[in-house]
Design a binder for these strands. Structure first.
Lengths: 204, 204
DNA sequence: GTCTATAAATGGATAGAC
DNA sequence: GTCTATCCATTTATAGAC
């Protein structure tokens, strides 16, 4: 084995710490979370925390990094089928599902709130999240434009507009905690509404 | 006079404290800002702070409240003139100018970041900011629909889409600190692009 | 590696002189 | 009303027993 049992257990412990850190940072933010609280919830001691992370800042950075890599991993896969409208609705629905995940909302909240103090983490999140997502969407739309299914236009601009139409009236309210998580039916309805508007603007 | 000089000076002092609190909370968030820091930057003592605000939480609440009332005040006035497209462009441009104000971005960041712990302040911000703004936009669009200048549709839905198209590709990047404040020329260009897309979707 | 105990500094909040 | 000084809890981080 390339990873001995010893190191395996160490990785597990590290993950357990990050799990607790996730809960704490998401609930209270960076400044209002203490290492003591994390240690207590972990059922361990602060000494152990500092054995795995050299400082609170480093633990916070590790928490953001892990959340970002999970975002990136989750964004993969999705081959839409059917007619044009049906495929776009699938894409919008996928976008909604992805960006409204409680974990995605939570990390966005933390990164925005703490962005002034941790700009490099904000950039990391941006690359893994919004940038990757819109980039993928842009490629898909460019493909549709080249095949004549959509009017020719700037694919990245269209991708941004597609994303913002899909999230219109939901995402920011969810970010502020002003609405509950939309039901599957509501998501589909919103995806269809967004696509209808988008198609009116981008039909050939 | 209804406000004696004594009370006037007290109000000024209170405002000065809130000015400093604004800088601190915006820069570091709630948890990472200390009353000691605020007192030091104020050039006063903590005792003075506690003479005006009973606790750190109360000071924070006062800071959010003041920011919200400034937002609401600033959102007033705007009678667009000219042809339909020109008027919509003015509205989009006004929206951009308003929501990209450094103070508006800053308070949004803080409210989002601290929303989990101060839900009532989040609601306050929501009522004063997004809700008031989109509401106003909805009324304007409804008016245009009734006069036959726009296709009939749900005015509030259209208002959300109008707002999100206007901010598309700018607001969230600005919120994350990934781009600089757009120049006036860029704002106008973005307003025009948004309106062109909107009009394709909502022309009669 | 993990714990207890503690150092050293700082947090929110208060008391009392002026 | 504002200051200095201070209380006491809590903070990050470390030392040393096991």
């Amino acid at each position: 084995m390339s990873t001995p049992a010893r190191e395996m257990r160490r990785e597990d412990r590290r993950d357990a710490i990050l799990d607790v850190a996730y809960e704490c940072f998401v609930a209270d933010g960076y400044g209002s979370t203490s290492m003591s609280t994390i240690a207590a919830r972990l059922g361990g001691s602060k000494g152990t925390l500092y054995n795995y992370f050299r400082s609170k800042e480093e633990l916070f950075a590790a928490f953001v990094r892990r959340s970002c890599s999970e975002l990136r991993h989750d964004i993969d896969s999705m081959p839409p089928e059917g007619d044009l409208r049906g495929r776009l609705v699938q894409m919008a629905r996928h976008l909604l599902d992805h960006l409204l995940l409680p974990e995605a909302i939570a990390i966005y909240r933390v990164v925005v709130g703490e962005g002034e103090r941790f700009p490099e983490l904000t950039r990391l999140f941006y690359e893994a999240g919004p940038r990757a997502g819109v980039g993928r969407m842009g490629e898909a739309l460019q493909d549709l434009m080249e095949r004549g299914e959509l009017r020719r236009a700037d694919p990245m601009l269209a991708a941004h507009q597609f994303k913002d139409l899909a999230l219109s009236g939901v995402y920011n309210l969810r970010l502020l905690g002003m609405i509950e998580d939309p039901t599957p039916e509501e998501r589909t309805a919103r995806a269809e509404i967004a696509v209808d508007t988008f198609l009116r603007a981008y039909a050939p």
